[in-house]
């Protein structure tokens, strides 16, 4: 008796033996699959149609600045199977492009747009990659990249503060 999680790992490994870098069961209800970036669309279609992963949960990017890579993670929940799959892929940091998955999961529309805005990852085939959360006149780098440094927390000089407070 194999659990749903193991079944997912098995079937994805048999279907895409070449393109899957790693597929494992993390814990109960969690499966992690990492794929090559050019095959993510096919794997996504397979996950949706064959395995019933139909409910997109989030799209997130992680900036691994040490290895000069972005990781993009699609977390998809299966409403019937009650398993969450993390479909992850790594793309180079200097040319971050990825095929958009909104044809697979339509709900990823705003998630992908946000990821584009925050990390500068271009999603090919996305109809509207424009600024969503940031102000319209934003011209800085994508803010969630690790090389975008926040200014130090505005902490006024001690003397100034005491002077304003009228203390000694």
């Amino acid at each position: 008796m194999t659990s749903m999680e193991e079944k997912v790992v098995e079937s994805i490994k048999t279907r895409f033996p070449e393109d899957i870098i790693e597929a494992k069961v993390q814990r109960k209800n969690r499966v992690s699959i990492s794929v090559r970036s050019d095959k993510i669309y096919d794997v996504g279609l397979f996950l949706r149609d064959e395995l019933g992963f139909n409910h997109i949960t989030s799209v997130s990017g992680v900036d691994y600045i040490d290895t000069k890579e972005f990781e993009v993670i699609y977390n998809v929940w299966a409403i019937d199977g009650k398993v969450l799959v993390s479909l992850r892929t790594k793309i180079p940091r200097d040319n971050p492009t990825l095929k958009s998955l909104i044809k697979v999961w339509e709900g990823a529309f705003y998630h992908e747009r946000e990821t584009w805005e925050m990390f500068g990852i271009k999603f090919e085939g996305h109809p509207n990659l424009s600024l969503l959360l940031l102000p319209e006149d934003w011209d800085g780098p994508p803010p969630l990249r690790k090389d975008f440094l926040l200014p130090d927390t505005p902490q006024e000089k001690l003397e100034e503060k005491i002077k304003r407070a009228g203390g000694q």
Binding site: K161, I162, R164, A165, G166, G167, Q168
Partner: peptide
């Protein structure tokens, strides 16, 4: 004033 919101130790 904003200054009034700063509470010196005393």
């Amino acid at each position: 004033t904003r200054k009034g919101l700063i509470y010196p130790p005393d």
